[in-house]
């Protein structure tokens, strides 16, 4: 069953087009990742979908309701976790939960049961009396998520829940999302981390407010249409300049090494001569497997060109 349907969404801030012709759909029990760098338009899309921003064109339909006509009917079914911590730092963990339970009109015993369950899977029970502002980054995110789960939403929209969170908590948060998905929630989560995309059922790459590609994580890489080579050399600005002058390959710094991208079906050996002039021997060049990040960068450059 299709629970989220966004069609041909347009949104601009004055002259700046933040989202253009964006379409997204998610089924019940689906975990959908929206990936893209900072400023790609992820937050704008999410805020618009949650009714926090006006939009110029398109339609947004959640759980069968049009957001413009029946937003009141959508709200009880929706959980939205903003990118920045949006709870009250001077209220304790328990008080924050109590407050949101109240806003969703929950009965007292209903709330208490739900709270214990949320404590169990988040591990927040130990910190029930601690002020939210004094929690660690990971715990804050778990609390924010818990506050959005208190009313058992059908649709959960999470804006970069793992940004600024330690690796262990990141892993835990994704485990929680997988459990929720199995319970039948539809989850749309944005992330700047490509390794998290692999954990989702489906992913959408976004750049400059446009959809670059959409598909299952393990099928996405088939769209990568070039070869990558890793060069063991210090990526000084001098060498990068000269590499960029070579026709037919693209080079990019990658940590303390350099990645070279050739055109599809191009043989790397034709460049060995040019490269050796730059002091790069054939032995220091080795082919590597492309990753989602490589695909993203390729698509991004094609879209910019």
């Amino acid at each position: 069953m299709n629970l989220v349907q966004i069609s041909n969404l347009d949104k601009s801030y004055g002259q700046l087009k933040a989202v253009s012709n964006f379409t997204l759909s998610a089924d019940q029990g689906e975990l959908l990742a929206v990936a893209g760098p900072d400023g790609a338009g992820k937050t704008t899309i999410f805020r618009t979908v949650c009714g926090l921003l006006e939009y110029d064109n398109g339609t947004i339909n959640l759980a069968g309701f049009d957001i413009d006509k029946d937003f009141d009917k959508i709200k009880p079914l929706l959980g939205y976790m903003p990118q920045n911590f949006s709870l009250y730092p001077d209220l304790s963990v328990e008080e924050n939960l109590y407050f949101y339970a109240g806003l969703f009109g929950m009965k007292k015993n209903e709330y208490q049961q739900k709270r214990e369950r949320l404590y169990q899977f988040s591990g927040l029970g130990l910190f029930a009396k601690r002020r939210a502002g004094k929690l660690s980054g990971g715990m804050k995110q778990k609390l924010a998520l818990s506050c959005n789960l208190i009313h058992d939403p059908k649709i959960l929209i999470l804006d970069e829940p793992t940004t600024g969170v330690d690796p262990v908590s990141r892993r835990q948060l994704w485990d929680i999302l997988k459990t929720l998905k199995q319970d039948g929630s539809t989850i749309i989560v944005s992330t700047p981390y490509m390794d998290e995309v692999a954990l989702a059922d489906r992913a959408i790459f976004v750049h400059n407010g446009k959809k670059l590609i959409e598909g299952k994580p393990n099928e996405l890489l088939s769209h990568f249409n070039s070869a990558i080579y890793k060069i063991k050399a210090v990526p000084s600005s001098g060498i990068m300049d000269q590499l960029n002058q070579i026709e037919g390959i693209t080079s990019r710094r990658f940590g303390s090494s350099i990645h070279l991208y050739t055109r599809p079906q191009q043989n790397m050996e034709v460049y060995y001569n040019r490269l050796s002039q730059l002091g790069i021997s054939a032995e220091s060049i080795s082919p590597i497997k492309p990753e989602l990040e490589d695909l993203f960068i390729q698509l991004m450059e094609q879209s910019d060109a």
Binding site: R47, C50, G51, L52, D72, K75, P76, L78, G79, Y80, M81, P82, N84, F85, S86, L87, Y88, P89, Y100, L103, F104, G105, A144, C147
Partner: peptide, 13 residues
């Protein structure tokens, strides 16, 4: 300022 309004406005209130 603190962004809590963003969270508040998505609740049925």
């Amino acid at each position: 300022e603190s962004g809590t309004m963003e969270q508040l406005l998505t609740t049925p209130i």
